[in-house]
Amino acid sequence: MAMLDATVGHMPGMVETAPAPGPLLSVRDVGKRYGARIGCADVSFDLWPGEVLGIVGESGSGKSTLLGCLSGQLVPDTGEVVFDSRDRGPVDTLRMSERERRHLGRTDWAFVHQNPRDGLRLGVSAGGNVGERLMANGARHYGNIRATAQDWLARVEIDPGRIDDRPRQFSGGMQQRLQIARNLVSGPRLAFMDEPTGGLDVSVQARLLDLLRGLVRDICLSVVLVTHDLAVVRLLADRLMVMKGGHVIESGLTDQVLDDPQHAYTQLLVSSVLQV
């Protein structure tokens, strides 16, 4: 709830006493086409520190395309994405060099894939997976790297005694938690997540959601979270954007959008889920 207040507190027109920090991520008119087909179009929003933004919509509505554009994995045709980096303040992530983007990608940013196999090194131990970012950022003390990796395994509820096991020896839910630890070890401020609970069965999902909720709160992580699942956004997201045909058709505080949807499509989406 504190997050929601923060969001409201920074609404334009409000009188502010202390010099307020700007948004962490500022997105303007982002669009991408695949030939004649629209991937996403005219997407604008601000994401504030510590805020979780859910993006929902049917298959093909442009969620992954948008996430790709925001995280530097796809190059949008139009628009601007400005990120408030720790090192250098606000930077235009679309115009930065590949070197700078990779640096962001292993420091301030995290990317959690739906399939943990896409986000893990399967041939490398759990400790090596978690330690990679530290080493990429210059850590050269084996003992310290290992201690940090053990700490993060514990934080994602993996027995630190399994630090030398390979991801293949882990269950799907453990692999997903390992992927999260591997990403969060560098203390990022922004995480992109594409269906992070997608391939998991319901009880495993619930545990992961709980864990994510705690971590987001503990390290003041901002998240752009793509999902099909309205139950997931209900639990995690402060704010919600509903996409259809590449466009954002409705956005607002999560509870508002879900409890009082304005757009006919959102009403259908919410009612169809509630019937299930």
Binding site: E98, R99, R102, R106, R121, V124, S125, G127, G128, G131, E132, R133, M135, A136, N137, R140, Y142, I145, R146, I163, D164
Partner: peptide
Amino acid sequence: LADYGLMQVRLYEDIAR
């Protein structure tokens, strides 16, 4: 990009094993 974290992972794995 001289982005050699992975190389260090190789040595990490060696010591771990």
